[in-house]
Amino acid sequence: MMKMQRFELIEHTADIGVRSFGGTIAEAFETAAAGMFSLLADPGRIRERQEFPVEVEAEDREMLLVEWLNELLYIYESRGVLLKRFHIGEISDNRLRGSAYGEPIDSVRHEIRTDIKAVTYYQLRVEQRESGWLTEVIFDV
């Protein structure tokens, strides 16, 4: 089955968000991460040279989405890397394990487009629909 990798940006006066879709909740979370990193830099210019394992826990699915994205932002900021591909191996309502793939920021090849300060809980959604899963999240930029 082909993986659905679809996201769109949500307009907000001061900030910006991402709406993602996926056949499974894992895909929807992976796509949300891809959407977030597309705000930071051009994914076409990021190579998959390193793997970063990620494991997060939260009270419910919505908070799990925020934790997942905040963890990726933390990896980006603390290690100075850009991430491109995301894979979630295990996911429940309270916990996920996965990996992110990317490379160190290279000031020649990469232009950082936007600073994302944090992932907010505002208008946060994780929903199962007939056609699959939808997530919505707003960033503080």
Binding site: E59, M63, A118, D140
Partner: peptide, 17 residues
């Protein structure tokens, strides 16, 4: 940003519980 992130999480989780 990190201080805020951590306390929104902490207080949000407390509210859920």
């Amino acid at each position: 940003h990190q201080v805020c992130t951590e306390y929104v999480k902490l207080m949000g989780a407390a509210a859920v519980r």
